[in-house]
């Protein structure tokens, strides 16, 4: 039973991974990263419940707090991106690549 929870969270992590790599919408990328962190949380809580300790729950509180801290910076990122480009497309941000010219 414990392994089922672990496998579920690995599957969820992979779904988040696919979303974060293949999509170009910045808000969806952010939500995929949140999904990956949630998958980690499920693993920790199920450990806690099956091994009858509270350490897993405490660690998953840490994960939640780290996710919240990242959320604040991501909100700032959405605002700056949208102000500059009027779009959420990450592929529009490629001016750094242009200077990569080899002469």
């Amino acid at each position: 039973m414990f392994k089922n929870y672990l496998i579920l969270s690995i599957l969820l992590f992979s779904l988040g991974l696919i979303g974060a790599v293949s999509r170009r919408n910045i808000i969806i990328i952010y939500m995929s990263i949140e999904l990956m962190l949630n998958a980690v949380s499920i693993m920790l809580v199920s450990y806690s419940s099956f091994y009858n300790t509270n350490t897993g729950v405490v660690l998953s509180i840490m994960v939640t707090a780290i996710a919240a801290a990242e959320a604040a910076l991501f909100m700032a990122l959405f605002v700056t991106l949208y102000r500059k480009k009027k779009s959420l497309d990450t592929s529009l941000f490629n001016s750094l690549k242009d200077t990569n010219a080899t002469k």
């Binding site: 790599v21 999509r23 170009r24 919408n25 497309d89």
Partner: peptide, 20 residues
């Protein structure tokens, strides 16, 4: 204003092949 993603399905399938 949404990103134009013409190859979204293809990209997702390719990524899943890598992630699998």
């Amino acid at each position: 204003n949404l990103p134009h993603e013409p190859h979204k399905t293809r990209d997702m399938i390719l990524t899943s092949l890598v992630v699998f």
